[in-house]
Design a protein around this nucleic acid. Structure first.
Length: 651
DNA sequence: TCCGGGGTTTTTTTT
DNA sequence: AAACCCCGGA
């Protein structure tokens, strides 16, 4: 028996007036949110600021940074909030656990992977990798079936997306299939068999896809009480940003992690939920509110946009969202402009010319953004801006890590980390002449067998090589040389010098540009000593470009609306607002228009001072669109705009 | 049986 | 830009 004296640590003083930068609504949300709280925050209402000051508040109350968990939609958002909170508190907040759900779950799993049947050196499959593995498994199952069954088996990407939907149906396969396409229910047995095998294969190969990062973390928490106890003890406070775009599993992870202290602070706006295709479930907001004792705060004052813009925004609040009226703080400003152009060509000209005028009037290029529904609309604008010498950056487009050459190089790094990663083996083997699908899969299989029985994969290559040509000799030599290297950049440089640069110039017309990308990868890698950290970071990073902070220079931003979420510019052009382009043709066909409405809402609320909504005289140039438009009267966003709130221009 | 060249098609958004 | 299909040749 001994007595414990409670020794209370006095928090270090934080300046008294720190909250003066917040208005009443915001202060209330920050200071009075205890236990479970949800902040319903309209666009431009200072949501980032509120989360930032919540961190400040917790720190000033003596909560240790390492006991705060911050989940955000992008890593950049987390970084920004932490940097600002550090400025205010003067405290080093490096110990806070913060990032996207995926990166945080990855962090947990690197520690506890064995508890869910994995090794800690698992590698992560991105979307393409998942598809590759699914294709592999699919053809294996297919080969066991009579040929006439073949036509009933859905394509790999369909299978991948069904598999992904199970995150929200909580492993109910028939519900997931139904959500994708009810007709596919006839093939339930086959789909079920393929997906089961896909799961087994991932485990065998020690790889996780994006969903696994979440699902396995949830399983870890649900099934391993000691781990759950540790983590839920550690995190006294859990902060979640963009809560409307979380899925069911993410929400459940939050509840598990908060099971000890019960402090959850979530921020979101149901009107801005735009990721349902990926499982986002704005009903999470309702579920959260419906738990007794939850405190609800609303912050609906808009600081971002001029009153003219806010008036339009209020007129276009998505129909399926909690009714709300934003209150403008800023004065009038110029009315938003609806611009009718003849075709896409003219639209590009208009955008280019107008940007030049705005800059002449004193705006910076970096104050301007062009937003579109799909990537394909960036092309014309890009050409136009290039021809006028207007500097721009593309936020969307092919992601860096999805470029073929980057994936090639990363595949080498991945097998060093995890030699069971079959997708990577197939990828690198096929770089060598004379090696195709068959030999590559055979190599991957052989490697798996050898490695599992403790034999070096170099011997596995020998085994395959002797039965075929000597195409794999070079690969063996490369891997042998790589064996002693540890730092990721060293490996990349070696690969480039040894064969990859040569391969590029033989294979691609634009070899120089691709080589440059690889050197950029090496440069990124040089900041990491640890291979696993580098690979994890780069596969869970949403945007490599912004990570390295090259956006200091003065450039116009081109982006999809999805990627523009959370950002703002003085002048925003929303282009190709034609039924079939935006709202998107597939959404029109599927009657999935609520989300398009929300997307339009997100687009127009990015603008601070000037908003241009541009459409074409004859609508979409997409040849597939006409049929759908017939059935979709009233889905032209332009028609919904109240005439008195905007100006009309015509080129 | 397997590889690879040549030609064709692609419908969205992405951690 | 890359995935898919078809077919000639090894």
């Amino acid at each position: 028996m001994y007595k414990v004296k409670k020794y209370k640590l006095v928090p270090r003083a934080v300046p008294q007036n720190i909250y003066e930068k917040l208005d009443e609504e915001q202060q209330n949300a920050v200071l009075n949110s205890e236990g479970r709280s949800i902040i319903i925050a309209g666009p431009g209402s200072g949501k980032t600021r509120v989360v930032t000051y919540k961190i400040v508040h917790l720190i000033s109350r003596g909560v240790s940074p390492k006991r705060i968990l911050l989940m955000t939609f992008t890593k950049a958002a987390a970084k920004e909030m932490i940097a600002r909170a550090r400025q205010v508190t003067g405290r080093d907040l490096n110990e806070m656990v913060a990032g996207t759900f995926h990166s945080v779950c990855n962090l947990f799993l690197r520690k506890y992977a064995q508890h869910v049947g994995y090794d800690n050196n698992f590698t992560i499959l991105d979307r393409d990798d998942s598809k590759d593995l699914m294709r592999l498994v699919r053809s294996r199952v297919l080969s066991r079936m009579p040929a006439e069954m073949k036509k009933f088996i859905p394509h790999p990407e369909v299978l991948v997306s069904i598999n992904s939907y199970m995150m929200n149906t909580l492993s109910d396969l028939s519900a997931a299939i139904k959500r994708k396409n009810p007709m596919l229910l006839d093939n339930y047995e086959i789909i079920s068999e393929i997906l089961a095998e896909y799961s087994i294969e991932k485990r065998k190969q020690n790889v996780m896809d994006f969903d696994d990062l979440l699902v396995n973390t949830l399983r870890l928490l649900q099934e391993k009480s000691r781990v759950k106890e540790r983590l839920s003890e550690q995190f006294e406070w859990i902060l979640v940003d963009e809560f409307q775009d979380t899925n069911k599993v993410q929400y459940m992870i939050v509840e598990e992690l908060a099971s000890k202290h019960g402090n959850i602070f979530v921020v979101g706006d149901d009107a801005q939920s735009i990721y349902s295709f990926r499982g986002a479930r704005f009903e999470n907001v309702e579920d959260f509110i419906n738990i007794p004792g939850t405190r609800i705060f609303r912050i609906q004052t808009n600081y971002r946009s001029t009153q003219s813009i806010v008036e339009l925004v209020n007129a276009l609040i998505p129909s399926k969202s909690v009714p709300k009226v934003l209150k403008a703080i800023r004065s009038d400003g110029e009315k938003p402009v609806v611009v009718k152009t003849f075709d896409e060509e003219e639209q590009a000209q208009f955008v280019g010319q107008r940007i030049e005028e705005l800059v002449e009037e004193g705006m910076r290029f970096s104050d301007i953004a062009v937003l579109y529904r799909t990537h394909k609309f960036s092309m014309r604008i890009e050409m136009e801006l290039a021809s006028r010498g207007i500097p721009y950056r593309i936020l969307s487009g092919l992601r860096f890590v999805e470029l073929a050459h980057i994936k090639d190089v990363l595949a080498f790094l991945r097998i060093v980390l995890n030699p069971l990663d079959a997708v990577s083996w197939v990828r690198i083997a096929k770089l060598f002449e004379g090696v195709g699908d068959k030999t590559a899969s055979k190599l991957a299989d052989t490697v798996a067998r050898y490695v599992q029985s403790g034999v070096s994969y170099l011997d596995a290559i020998d085994a395959v090589r002797s039965s075929r040509k000597s195409a794999l000799s070079k690969l063996r030599e490369i891997l042998e040389n790589m064996k002693d290297m540890e730092s990721p950049s060293e490996i990349i440089d070696f690969l480039m010098d040894d064969f990859y640069e040569e391969y590029l110039s033989y294979r691609y017309e634009d070899a120089d540009e691709r080589a440059q990308d690889v050197r950029k990868l090496s440069e990124l890698a040089s900041r990491y000593e640890n291979l696993e950290r580098f690979i994890s970071d780069i596969t869970t990073a949403e945007n490599v470009e912004s990570e390295e902070g090259t956006n200091e220079s003065d450039r116009v931003t081109l982006s999809t609306i999805h990627q523009a979420k959370g950002l703002e510019w003085k002048a925003v052009f929303v282009i190709s607002v034609n039924p079939g382009d935006f709202p998107n043709a597939i959404a029109l066909r599927e009657g999935n228009l609520d989300e398009e409405e929300r997307l339009f809402y997100v687009a127009i609320t990015r603008a601070k001072d000037q908003l241009y909504i541009v459409h074409q005289l004859f609508g979409s140039a997409n040849p597939y669109v006409e049929n759908y438009i017939k059935f979709s009267k009233g889905m032209n966003f332009i028609d919904r705009i109240p005439e008195n709130l905007v100006e009309f221009w015509e080129t």
